[in-house]
Design a protein around this nucleic acid. Structure first.
Lengths: 208, 208
DNA sequence: GTTTTCATGTAACCCGTTACATGATTCA
DNA sequence: TGAATCATGTAACGGGTTACATGAAAAC
C-alpha cells in the first residue's frame, strides 16, 4: 500500500516513544516540535498512523473496545489512543541510526536531531558530522559557482547568494559547537573516573 | 496535462528572460542560482520546458530545423535553445507580482527574490513585507508553544527550538534592512531631484 | 441553540525526484 | 578506443498538501 519511509513516520514513532497519544494531540505536538522547520497536516498524519498500525509498530485503543463502558479518562469523542509496540521501538531505533539515503537533508536532519535524547552517542556524533560535511560540500559548490558568475549577477541575486552562504556558514559553526560538546561528553564518560559531569545533570533526568 | 504553477516554472521563465538557453545549461544556472536553497533535476526540468512550449510562453530552436545545415553556433549535439516569447514575458511578470497562495513560503520567496531586478519596486516591497509578517506569525506561534512546553523538553529539543528561533529572527532582521533600503530607494526616486544615488552602486553593508 | 473547538478521516491532486535509457562529443 | 562530459528525455514513484465530509463535546 505505502512505503511511508518519510520524515513523518520517524516523527510519529518518536513522539509515541515518549507517551501514548491520539491523532489530534499528536499533530499539535508535531507542529510545536518542528514549528520553525515544517508543518504536518491531518491528510498525511492519519494515513500514516493507519499504516504504522498495519505493520504492528503501534497499537490503537478505541474507548468502546477496551475500556468497555467507563469513559473515565476520555472526556471527549472516540479519541483513539496510539501506543508504541516493542517492534515499533526497534524500528524507531533503526530509523534513528540508519536514516537511509539523503539522511542529511534539512528535514531529515531536523527530525533526527529532535530525538537525540533517544539516540546513541555514537550515532549522534555521526549524524552531526555527516550533516556538517554535507553542508561544507554545499558551501564549496556555491562559492565556486559564485566565483564563476559574480560579474553578471545583479545586486539582488548577489544579496541572495550572500545571505544564503551566511546562513549555511552559521549552521556549520553551530554544528561545530555541538560536535565539540558531544566529544567533551564522550571524554568525560570514557575517562576512568568520569561521572558524566558535563551533560547529564540537565538532559533528560535519566534516573535521578 | 499539467498545471506547472510551481517554483520551477517561474525560475525557468526568469532565467530565459535574461537570455535564451538550452536545457542542460539552464539546469546548471538554476542550481548555481538557488544553490543553497534547493536543486532541480532533469526529470522536472524537461517536462516543464515541454509544457511551457505547449502554452506558448517559450519557443524552441532546434539546429536542423532553423539553421539548416551549418552547425556554426552549436558545437555539440542537437542543443535545443529555448527563448521567451512576448506572452512568456507577460506571464513572468504576472507570476512575479501575484505569486498566488502560499507566496511567502521559503521556496517561493527565494525564487521571487532572485528576480527582484526584474520586479516592480511596489511588488518588491509587498513581497518583502509579506514574507516578514509571515515569519513574525511563525515566531509568535513558536514562542507561545515554547512557553507552554518548556519544562518537559530535553536539552536537544530545546537547543533545536532555540536555533530555529534564532534563524527566523535573523531572517526578520535581514528583511528589515532590505525593506529600509527599498523605502530609501523609493524616497530618492520620488523626490523632485532624486537620481537613484542610494541603491545602485553597492548596497551591501552600508555601515553595519 | 448556535458557534467553536476537538476529533477522525478520504480523494484528488501537486510538484517534484529517482532511476533509467539514449546518444553525441571531447579528452586521455 | 574507451572514459568522461554534454545533452535530451521518460516512467514510476514519493511524500506530502488541499479541500472536503462528518460528527461529538464545550463554550457562549
Amino acid at each position: 500500500m505505502a512505503k511511508r519511509a518519510g520524515v513523518l513516520e520517524l516523527a510519529v514513532l518518536g513522539l509515541l516513544h515518549e507517551s501514548p497519544l491520539h491523532g489530534y494531540e499528536l499533530r499539535k505536538r508535531l507542529n510545536a516540535l518542528f514549528g520553525p522547520l515544517r508543518a504536518f497536516s491531518y491528510g498525511s498524519l492519519y494515513p500514516c498512523l493507519k499504516d504504522l498500525l498495519g505493520r504492528g509498530w503501534i497499537t490503537e485503543e478505541r474507548p468502546s473496545s477496551a475500556t468497555g463502558s467507563a469513559t473515565a479518562l476520555a472526556g471527549r469523542r472516540s479519541k483513539i489512543v496510539y501506543k508504541l509496540t516493542a517492534e515499533g521501538k526497534e524500528r524507531f531505533q533503526e530509523l534513528l541510526a540508519d536514516g537511509g539515503p539523503r539522511s542529511w537533508d534539512d528535514d531529515n536532519f531536523g527530525v533526527h536531531f529532535a530525538f537525540f535524547a533517544q539516540t546513541d552517542a555514537e550515532v549522534r556524533l555521526r549524524i552531526l558530522e555527516g550533516r556538517r560535511s554535507r553542508l561544507e560540500e554545499r558551501l564549496e559548490g556555491v562559492r565556486a559557482a559564485l566565483a564563476r558568475t559574480r560579474e553578471r549577477l545583479d545586486t539582488y541575486t548577489l544579496e541572495l547568494q550572500r545571505h544564503g552562504l551566511e546562513s549555511v556558514e552559521r549552521e556549520v559553526r553551530w554544528l561545530n559547537e555541538l560536535i565539540k560538546t558531544e566529544r567533551q561528553g564522550w571524554r568525560d564518560r570514557t575517562l576512568p573516573g568520569g561521572s558524566g559531569l558535563q551533560r547529564d545533570d540537565q538532559e533528560g533526568a535519566p534516573n535521578g
